[in-house]
Design a protein around this nucleic acid. Structure first.
Length: 581
RNA sequence: GCGCCCCUAGCUCAGCUGGAUAGAGCAUCGGACUUCGAAUCCGAGGGUCGUAGGUUCGAAUCCUACGGGGCGCGCCA
């Protein structure tokens, strides 16, 4: 139940009652307020069409408002130049929160009509180590998959891995030289960069090898069985390695979700033929191209999307188009999300426009580029190692955990080493992911270990700590034999209790906002506000030592609801919520 | 040259369909632990929201121009 929606309905009814049915379409404009719980700005917006002073309209509106069950009569006020303020009634807040307490989904309903949402994310390259560049796509995509899935959408993750193309000639030839078994074991241990570099070196330095590599590409693309078997060895070993990284990172992707470039290979000639037959693409300078009025190049000439190269080969545009066709027709997706970097924006704009023209993307389906900025180093340049290489994701995870372990041992020496290690894993990786999710994805962000692992501010550890503290209270309560159930009466008598209750009701609208905007940081902002409201409550309001039994029970239940919402929210970020840390 | 994205406090970032006095964290200064976890909380100072116009009763938010930074512009993905 979303309070804002309830209030908006009442305001709309009052508009109709006071000003006539012809204004039933007017915007109630209800939102949170710093002067009350909520405010409605409808009167301000109606001033012009009704040609009356907004303050007068606001008063008329307030007189016609029926807020029974939501606010006390004194809870509705008007202030210049035309705001209508709402303070929710205590009885309403208490019963609303009770329904949150009874629901394991914390009062968030599932959508009535689920849509099929394909989310394309992570997409590592088989030949290369996963690095910082992949972390954003993987973590943001995972958070969106979890959030939309929780809301009841039918989410189909797609890991569009780079498992095809000309580099595989040299990679497979190198694998041939090493022997399949040895190569497979190297690859599954994460020596992808070394493997790639060794192959590259031979390719550049040994003409005979280079020639064999070129032959190998031909064999691969013509479907030679022995070559394909080697290719499967290569891809299988790499995927096993990626799977270990995914598990450690705590993302949901599995082998089931892998549908790489190779999967679409056989569809490419048909996609090209279809586009040409429909007149969407035409041959220019030997290449099959799609042109657009809005995309122009350096000399003002239109820049094309190249579907098929002049040598007959297919580029990634063809693969992307085939994937769209597959996703709308075979997977019956109506929402297609592409979680990739901002630099690819023009590419996807052209691909989506082409798909629309060709009917691959029916009007009922929409494709969205969920783009994100770069991760920057302390120098504000692209985050690289000192030697200028990409930072390996595996190294990043190790360092995050090592730093977290140091902090955990320091802050809580009582934890036994095994548990400290487990907690460090949760905290370190949680901090890394949270840092990525908590700022607006469109912007570049500066990578900073100290800031992401800080226990103050909008960080993973702060939220986990708030959660762990509540768990601690729950433990103590259980030891003392204090039991609360979801039927325990809630008493919102003090301001901190009231603020916390108000915050606990915001999960539903925030998740709706994340679904609409595809901006996971809005949920982080909410969780931080919630944790702050809780710690304020916690500092001012004794729980186990409350003045009377009813207050104690109520506060304990308040703690429990907060723990559930916090845990739920962290879960939707793909983060663990340790019971102690 | 064309196009896209970004610019908010000393630093790192929020700011929801335009709404009342632009908010956090860090840093600085000052308070709060014999009491549920001080990894915390409470308070203070600190901002011409890049600049200039425009739309509006009202602009950090929408439009235009300019400045600064980043990225992309035919056969790589």
């Amino acid at each position: 139940m979303d309070v804002q929606v309830l209030l908006a309905e009442r305001v709309r009814a009052a508009i109709v009652k006071a000003f006539g049915a012809e204004h039933s379409g007017a915007e109630p404009a209800v939102h949170r307020s710093s002067f009350a719980d909520y405010q409605a700005d409808a009167a301000l917006r109606l001033a012009k069409p009704l040609k009356k002073p907004p303050l007068e309209l606001a008063k008329t509106l307030a007189q016609n408002l029926d807020t029974s069950g939501l606010c006390e009569p004194s809870g509705v006020t008007v202030s210049p130049p035309g705001f209508v303020n709402f303070t929710l009634g205590r009885a309403f807040l208490e019963s609303a929160l009770a329904s949150v307490a009874r629901d394991e989904r914390a009062g968030v309903p599932r959508v009535a009509a689920p849509a099929t949402v394909v989310i394309d994310y992570s997409g590592p390259n088989m030949a290369k180590e996963m690095h910082v560049g992949h972390i954003r796509s993987t973590v943001i995509g995972d958070a969106l998959a979890r959030t939309l899935g929780f809301l009841g959408q039918r989410v189909v993750p797609q890991n569009h891995v780079g498992d095809w193309g000309t580099p595989f000639g040299m990679l497979l030839e190198h694998l041939e030289d090493l022997g399949a078994d040895r190569a497979a074991s190297e690859l599954s241990m994460g020596s992808l960069n070394q493997f790639y570099q060794a192959a590259r070196q031979k390719f550049d330095g040994d003409p005979a090898f280079a020639e064999r590599a070129r032959q190998r590409v031909v064999l691969l693309q013509s479907g030679d069985e022995q070559t394909l078997a080697r290719w499967r060895t290569f891809v299988g070993a790499s995927l096993r390695y990626f799977s270990t990284l995914y598990r450690r990172l705590g993302v949901l992707l599995t082998d089931e979700d892998v549908r790489g470039e190779s999967f679409y290979n056989s569809m490419l000639p048909d996609v090209a033929a279809d586009l040409e037959r429909q007149g969407v693409a035409r041959v220019d300078a030997g290449a099959l191209c799609v042109f657009f009025d809005e995309f122009k190049g350096k000399d003002g000439a239109p820049v094309p999307l190249i579907v098929q190269k002049s040598d007959g080969g297919f580029g990634y545009a063809a693969t992307d188009l085939a994937a769209i066709r597959f996703r709308t027709s075979e997977l019956s997706a109506t929402r297609l999300l592409y979680v990739t970097g901002a630099p690819q924006q023009q590419h996807f704009a052209m691909v989506f426009a082409t798909a629309k023209r060709a009917g691959f993307l029916p009007p009922a389906a929409r494709a969205e580029h969920v783009m994100f900025g770069s991760i920057l180093g302390p120098d504000k340049k692209m985050f690289k190692t000192r030697s200028g290489e990409n930072v390996k994701l595996a190294d990043l995870l190790d360092e995050a955990v090592a730093r977290a372990e140091k902090a955990v041992r320091e802050k809580n020496p009582d934890l036994d080493p095994g548990e400290a290690r487990r907690v460090a894993e949760d905290v370190g990786i949680g901090a890394l992911k949270y840092a990525d999710l908590s700022s607006d994805r469109i912007k570049d962000y500066v990578f900073d270990w100290d800031r992401m692992l800080a226990f103050e501010g909008n960080t993973g550890p702060y939220l986990q700590y708030a959660h762990a503290r509540i768990c601690s209270i729950a433990r103590k309560a259980a030891e003392a034999g204090i039991v609360v159930t979801d039927a325990t009466p809630l008493v919102l008598a003090t301001e901190p209790e009231r603020k916390l209750a108000l915050e606990l009701g915001m999960l539903e609208p925030v998740l709706a906002l994340v679904e609409r905007t595809l901006e996971p940081h809005k949920l982080c902002g909410y969780l931080f506000d919630l944790a702050s409201a809780f710690t304020s409550f916690y500092e001012s309001s004794p729980v186990l030592r409350a003045e009377d039994e009813a207050t104690r029970a109520s506060r304990l239940l308040l703690c429990q609801i907060t723990k559930n919402v916090l845990g739920l929210g962290l879960g939707l970020r793909g983060m663990a919520a340790p019971k102690r840390m």
